[in-house]
């Protein structure tokens, strides 16, 4: 479970609203079920008590919503940021995507988010409610009289298992403790694929990407995908397309998307979280991050404001494209 409670966040938000420091609060709202939360804007204390929630399913990265909301709402917006969200927040700031003056950011700790798919795998369908205990979740279902207890660690999302940092890199106020940058094994999966043969890699991605239904959820949730007009929606871009077509179409979409966010992606994992087809899209981004780290030096997008990303930078002695062979590539 999370170390800060919904109640404490609610109270802080209500008081900031009350004293007029902020005009609105960007947070998570209860959906139909406890585990399907949606990002929401709250403008009154009552709304907060009614709907605001912070629990093991508050995965959504709220930073992207600031773009639109800071333009729509007069006055400051309070936003709750988990550690990984703060990286996106910083990255968007570097790209001048919103006015920092219009935001009041509160950093909140995160003990990792739960993956509902993993829970379903354990308890089955028909989940009605989920209660958080110390280190476990009590899952109520239609079919069981007693709630089933599952350990939090067991159902952590993939991205939280490979959490890169518990540190908040940007905030106005911090609730709870300041964490640290962690050493993660987030590139292990990429390396595994790199170790395959070209045919196996092709087959792997063919299998994954052919499931894409082009719902654009990955793009819409991605805090780096914030273009005023996406190239895939622009008839003049030459790559406009809205529906899944041939086999390649998806690859084109996902390669271009990964390339466009390369150097800007903070590895927040939203793309994979929101994918209804469970395509491990974050692996494409991680591949770019890994390659750039290994070729041009360690770089974490969003770590600082106003960094120069590897792809808008160069050094005179960069290796040649033919020499940049990281992991993959049949050496035969």
């Amino acid at each position: 479970m999370q170390t800060v409670t919904t109640k404490s966040l609610c109270e802080r938000a209500a008081s900031l609203l009350g004293e007029g420091t902020v005009a609105a609060v960007l947070g998570w709202k209860r959906g139909e079920f406890d585990y399907d939360l949606t990002p929401a804007v709250f403008t009154a204390a009552e709304e907060l008590t009614e709907g605001f929630i912070y629990n093991d399913f508050s995965g959504a990265n709220l930073s992207k919503y600031l773009l639109k909301k800071t333009r729509e709402i007069d006055g400051k917006i309070l936003v709750f940021l988990k550690p990984c969200d703060t990286y996106s927040f910083n990255q968007l700031l570097s790209e001048h995507r919103f006015d920092r003056e219009k935001v009041y950011a509160i950093g909140i700790p995160c003990s990792g988010m739960a993956d509902i798919q993993k829970i379903r795998k354990i308890v089955g369908e028909g989940i009605t409610a989920i209660e958080a205990c110390e280190n476990s979740l009590l899952v109520h279902t239609l079919y069981d009289d007693e709630p089933i207890s599952v350990s939090c660690a067991e159902v952590l999302t993939e991205r939280c298992l490979n959490c890169k940092s518990k540190k908040h890199v940007a905030y106005d106020e911090l609730i709870g403790d300041e964490g640290e940058v962690l050493t993660s094994n987030r590139f292990d999966e990429v390396e595994k694929i790199e170790a395959l043969s070209a045919d196996e890699r092709f087959a792997f991605w063919q299998n994954e990407l052919s499931r894409c239904i082009r719902c654009n959820a990955c793009r819409d949730a991605c805090p780096a995908c914030t273009c005023e007009k996406c190239v895939f929606d622009n008839p003049n871009s030459g790559v406009q397309s809205k529906a899944p077509g041939g086999e390649f179409e998806e690859k084109l979409f996902h390669i271009i998307r990964a390339y466009h966010v390369a150097g800007r992606c903070t590895d927040c994992g939203e793309c994979s979280r929101v994918c209804p087809q469970n395509i491990p899209l974050h692996l494409l981004n991680r591949k770019f991050i890994k390659d750039m780290n290994e070729t041009y030096g360690e770089y974490q997008a969003g770590e600082y404001d106003n960094q120069r990303a590897p792809l808008v930078n160069f050094s005179l002695d960069d290796p040649e494209p033919s020499d940049v062979v990281k992991g993959g590539f049949d050496r035969a």
């Binding site: 990429v190 694929i193 790199e194 070209a198 045919d199 196996e200 890699r201 092709f202 087959a203 792997f204 991605w205 063919q206 690859k251 390669i255 990964a258 390339y259 390369a262 494409l284 591949k287 770019f288 390659d291 750039m292 070729t295 041009y296 590897p310 792809l311 808008v312 930078n313 160069f314 050094s315 005179l316 960069d318 290796p319 040649e320 494209p321 940049v324 062979v325 990281k326 992991g327 993959g328 590539f329 049949d330």
Partner: peptide
């Protein structure tokens, strides 16, 4: 400086294509 950017961009793109199993 144009080709220095080219060098980085293509290094990354080619490595990605390789990752997807496209012949180098």
């Amino acid at each position: 400086t144009g080709n220095y950017y080219t060098r980085r961009r293509m290094s990354m793109l080619f490595s990605m294509l390789d990752f997807l199993g496209i012949e180098r």
